[in-house]
Computed example of a mutant assay.
Amino acid sequence: MNKINDLGSRSDRNTVFSRELLAEADDEKLKMIVEEAARDLNTPIALVTLVMEHVQFFKAHYGLPQDLAAMRGTDRDISFCQFVVATGESFEVENALTDDRVPKELVEQYDIRAYMGMPVTINDTVVGSLCVLDTKPRKFTETERNDLRKLSMLVNGRLSALASRRNQSNAMLLEHAAFPALVELRGLLKPIRSGIDVGHATILELSTFLRIAERSLYGRTFSKEEMLKTLSRAKEALDKYQNGLYDITVSVDDAEDSIDALEHVFHSSTTTLLSEIAISGRELARHSTVQSGGVLLPEIEEDIFVSTPRPFGVSLLAMTLSMFASRMVNSGLREKIRITMESGDSNAALVLEARGMPEAELLEIVKELKTHTDEDPTVSVRMEDGRVMLLFSVVKTRQ
Score class of each variant (00 low, 15 high):
R233C: 09
A278T: 04
M319H: 11
E335V: 00
S380W: 13
G195I: 02
F312D: 01
P309N: 10
L238N: 13
I259V: 11
L174R: 15
E299G: 07
T121F: 13
R13S: 13
K396T: 07
I259F: 05
F91P: 00
T121G: 03
D254Y: 01
E20T: 06
L245T: 09
L284R: 07
A25R: 07
Q291F: 06
R158W: 01
F57A: 06
Q56T: 04
H61V: 05
V381W: 03
L262N: 04
S11N: 08
N347S: 09
M383K: 06
M357E: 03
L317I: 03
N170Q: 15
K229F: 09
H287V: 06
G293Q: 10
L217P: 00
A70L: 10
V120R: 01
A161I: 06
V395S: 11
A325E: 07
D247A: 11
V48D: 05
E342Q: 10
A114F: 03
T397L: 11
N347E: 15
D254L: 09
F80R: 00
K367M: 09
S331T: 01
I203E: 12
S9C: 11
A255P: 02
A70Y: 08
M153K: 13
Y246T: 14
M319Q: 13
T74E: 05
M153I: 09
R101S: 08
A38E: 08
M357D: 01
L231H: 11
P358D: 12
A360N: 13
D254H: 11
N95P: 06
F58V: 10
V250G: 05
V295S: 09
L182V: 08
S258L: 02
E175I: 02
L30R: 05
E353P: 00
R138K: 06
V55T: 15
M341S: 12
N42I: 01
V84H: 05
G281W: 01
R220K: 14
M52I: 11
L97D: 13
F312P: 03
I337M: 08
A349S: 15
V132T: 10
E256T: 14
L316Q: 04
V290M: 13
I365H: 01
M172W: 10
L210W: 13
D77P: 00
A237M: 02
S79T: 03
I45M: 08
F57I: 13
V126Q: 04
Y115A: 02
Y241D: 14
E256M: 07
E359Q: 14
R145G: 07
E302S: 12
D100W: 06
V155H: 03
L245G: 07
E92L: 09
T378G: 09
V306G: 04
